[in-house]
Computed example of a mutant assay.
Amino acid sequence: MKKIGIIILALFMQQVSAQANRFVYQVTMKPDATNKNEIKTENAYLDISAEKSLFYSENRYKRDSIMQKNFQSSGARGFNRDQMESLRSIINYSVEKDKMNQKTLFKDRLGRDIYSYEEDRPLNWKISSETMKIGDYKVQKAETDFAGRLWTAWFTTDLPYQDGPYKFGGLPGLVIKVEDDKGDYSFDLMKNYKIDEVASLSQFGNVIKVKRPDFLKQQEKYKSDPIAFMSQGGGFGGSGRGGRAGGGIAPPRGAGNQSPVDMRKRMEERIKEETKNNSNPIELK
Rank of each mutant, 00 (worst) to 15 (best):
I4H: 04
I4Q: 06
G5A: 04
L9E: 12
A10P: 04
Q14W: 10
Q15L: 09
V16I: 13
Q19V: 01
A20C: 05
N21V: 10
R22V: 06
F23Q: 03
Y25P: 11
Q26R: 14
Q26W: 11
T28K: 05
T28P: 04
M29P: 04
P31A: 13
P31M: 14
A33Q: 15
A33S: 13
N35D: 12
I39Y: 09
A44C: 14
Y45E: 02
L46S: 08
L46E: 08
D47R: 13
I48A: 06
S49H: 12
S49N: 15
K52L: 15
S53P: 02
F55M: 12
Y56F: 14
S57L: 06
E58S: 09
K62R: 02
K62D: 01
D64W: 07
M67I: 02
M67Y: 03
Q72C: 02
S73M: 08
S74V: 05
R81K: 11
D82E: 07
M84T: 06
S86N: 11
S86P: 09
R88E: 05
I90C: 01
I90W: 02
I91V: 08
E96W: 07
K99S: 04
M100F: 02
M100W: 03
N101R: 15
Q102V: 04
T104S: 14
L105Q: 05
E118K: 03
E118F: 03
R121A: 06
N124R: 04
W125M: 12
K133W: 05
K133F: 06
G135M: 01
D136R: 13
K141P: 15
T144R: 09
T144Q: 07
R149Q: 03
W151A: 14
W151Q: 14
T152C: 10
A153D: 05
A153V: 02
W154M: 15
T157I: 14
D158L: 08
Y161S: 11
D163V: 15
G164D: 14
P165E: 13
K167W: 08
P172Y: 03
L174D: 01
V175Q: 01
I176Q: 12
I176T: 14
K177W: 00
K177Q: 07
K177V: 00
V178S: 07
E179S: 07
K182R: 09
Y185N: 00
D188E: 13
L189K: 01
D196V: 00
D196F: 02
D196H: 00
E197W: 15
S200N: 04
L201S: 00
S202I: 04
G205R: 02
K209D: 12
V210H: 00
K211R: 11
Q218K: 06
Y222C: 05
P226I: 10
I227T: 07
I227V: 13
A228W: 06
S239G: 12
R241D: 10
G243D: 14
G248I: 04
G248Q: 01
G248D: 01
R253W: 15
A255Y: 12
Q258K: 13
R264G: 08
R266W: 11
I271T: 00
E273W: 02
S279C: 10
N280H: 01
P281I: 00
I282Y: 15
E283N: 10
